[in-house]
Design a protein around this nucleic acid. Structure first.
Lengths: 228, 228
DNA sequence: CGAACCCTTGATGGCGATCAAACGCCGTGG
DNA sequence: CCACGGCGTTTGATCGCCATCAAGGGTTCG
């Protein structure tokens, strides 16, 4: 582990408040590994072997079915993923692959389940993490059921703009084809959706998007105050 | 509380393994109330005041946005709902209304959060409940993104048939208009979806549905083995 | 420099929403 | 007991969003 990385992982909400001793147990049983781009980390249906913590890089979680794939989440560092499968010890509902070269901390699932049982603060953090993840999924599902594609895109841009500092600029971290899949549409229609938003002050230049007229965009998208 | 009801609630996975003393604390601060049909229990955006446990009746959880509503879940007895909002103490993401006259146990949210902190088994059960709820939402979102409407309906019928005993018969507990909203479509298209499935052995008679040719239906729907 | 690959743009088609109307069920009130 | 009215469901007609198919332009990388 590089200097500064371990404190960064340890300060994640999931690990922050637990006993030092228990945290040491988790980390000592874990190992950090570098994966090349486009590598499948695991596939849906498998039993969970590790809790994954993305330290550096970019990871896609996707689900397959009915002969097609769809992106469920793009994981950015530093954060953990597939916690729910680990604590329940039930098969993954999603597959994972690296998008870029990625450094990932692998924590044996059995160790997580063991430490959860013995460290109250860690269980508390796990519970909260799962509750937040559940709420994220509720938002994603309502978004998919209630909004059409251009609205979903506009909404995502508004949220990303806030998370990236509110400078009126959004930097797309992943390819547009992936963004399309995340939003539940095809690349072609994502392109057209950007075209629709152009009439509402959205300028695109490759991966750089500028929101020139926030008011007009919000009028189109009608963002939900609760979804913040 | 009627005789037999309290044991039924206490034997729920959520409350089953906690200390008797802590369970008493929770129940002593709670009260059971009867609500008429079509009554709004709470609305999205509100701060959670109670954990709800549906003892008898039927409750709809729905979300509003972009000028429309969509059903997120139909709650059947005996089970709790809106646990995630209660433990995080964050605003509801969904609204709730009774569909039929319902008996609901109302547990003060603050008491839940307090007991969670002190009872390890209860926290463990809460964590697991949230993990399962999260997984349910993942399944719902993939279903919505990957399948079209007739497939979603067929899938739901197959699952309901299993949950109702595998007799080849499904009894729809709610109105079809509600089922349509749950599946993310209009009542008109639900009707047409039943029409499509009729060619695959699905006979409907009001709220009674019989699956005459399970193989044909599964061939159409391609159910996912993981989604069981 | 060439070959993928991504993104874009255009043309077409299908799924599902919307609009409209008729049927059946069930309650109320005459 | 029957007539009426309301509501949920069904069926038909039309429209719009989005997927698919197809082709061209731009970028990256070998």
């Amino acid at each position: 582990m590089r200097p500064g990385e371990r404190p960064e992982i340890a300060s994640l909400p999931l690990f922050r408040d637990m006993q030092d001793e228990q945290r040491d147990r988790i980390f000592s049983g874990s190992f950090l590994q570098v994966f090349p781009p486009q590598l499948t980390l695991f596939e849906q249906g498998q039993r969970p072997d590790f809790l994954h913590v993305l330290v550096d890089g970019l990871v896609e979680l996707y689900a397959s079915g009915a002969g097609r794939d769809t992106t469920m989440r793009v994981v950015e560092p530093v954060s953990s993923f597939i916690l729910a499968a680990v604590v329940t010890d039930m098969p993954y509902l999603m597959s994972a692959r690296t998008l870029t070269s990625s450094r990932i901390l692998l924590v044996p699932a059995a160790k997580i389940r063991e430490v959860v049982r013995h460290d109250h603060a860690f269980m508390d953090a796990t519970m909260r993490e799962l509750a937040m993840a559940y709420r994220d999924m509720v938002r994603a599902l309502t978004d998919m059921k209630l909004r059409q594609s251009a609205e979903r895109l506009g909404n995502l841009l508004l949220q990303q703009e806030q998370r990236q500092g509110g400078t009126g600029t959004v930097k797309l971290r992943a390819e547009k084809r992936l963004l399309a899949s995340l939003l539940g549409m095809t690349p072609e229609n994502l392109s057209r959706a950007f075209g629709v938003l152009a009439a509402h002050g959205v300028r695109t230049d490759g991966a750089n998007v500028t929101l020139a007229d926030r008011e007009a965009l919000e009028a189109l998208v009608r963002p939900d105050a609760i979804s913040d």
